[in-house]
Simulated assay, not measured.
Amino acid sequence: MNELVHAKRSAAPARSSAKETTRTNDPERTKANILEVAAAEFGEKGLAGARIDEIAALTQTSKRMIYYYFGSKEGLYLAVLEESYRRVRDIEAELHLQDLEPEQALRRLVAFTFDHHLHHENFIRLVMSENINRGLYIKQSSHIQELNVPAIAAIKNLYERGVKTGVFRAGLDPVDIHASISALSFFNVSNQHTFGVLFKLDMTSPAYTAHRRDSVIEMVARFMKK
Rank of each mutant, 00 (worst) to 15 (best):
H120Y: 01
I177T: 02
T194H: 08
L106T: 02
T165W: 04
R125E: 07
V80T: 00
G135W: 14
T165S: 14
E160N: 13
R107T: 01
H117E: 07
F187V: 12
Q192E: 12
I138D: 08
S205D: 15
A210E: 15
V197N: 11
V216K: 05
L158G: 09
V167L: 09
T209W: 07
I217E: 15
I91Y: 06
F195E: 05
I177M: 07
I144E: 05
H178I: 02
P102Y: 06
F114W: 09
I124A: 06
L172S: 10
S205P: 01
R134Y: 15
E218V: 00
T165M: 11
D176L: 14
E82A: 03
D214H: 14
E101F: 04
I155L: 13
R161N: 14
L158M: 13
V149F: 12
D176A: 15
F123C: 01
L100D: 11
S141F: 03
L95Q: 10
I155A: 10
Q145S: 12
L106N: 06
D202C: 11
V167I: 15
V163S: 05
L198W: 07
E130R: 01
N191L: 10
T165G: 00
S182Y: 15
L106P: 03
L136M: 12
I132C: 05
N157I: 00
L106Y: 01
M128I: 11
H178L: 03
G166K: 02
V88S: 00
R212S: 08
T194M: 05
Y159P: 01
L95T: 04
L147C: 08
R86C: 00
S190F: 04
R125A: 07
F112V: 02
R108A: 13
E101K: 07
E82Y: 00
H120P: 02
E82L: 03
E160R: 11
H96A: 04
Q140C: 03
R212D: 14
T194S: 10
A154H: 08
K164H: 11
E121A: 03
A183H: 15
T204I: 07
F199V: 04
R169N: 14
L81D: 04
P102V: 02
Y77F: 06
V197E: 14
T209R: 15
D99C: 05
A93W: 03
A105R: 01
H211R: 14
R108E: 14
H117S: 08
S141Y: 09
P174M: 09
Q140M: 07
V197S: 09
K200S: 12
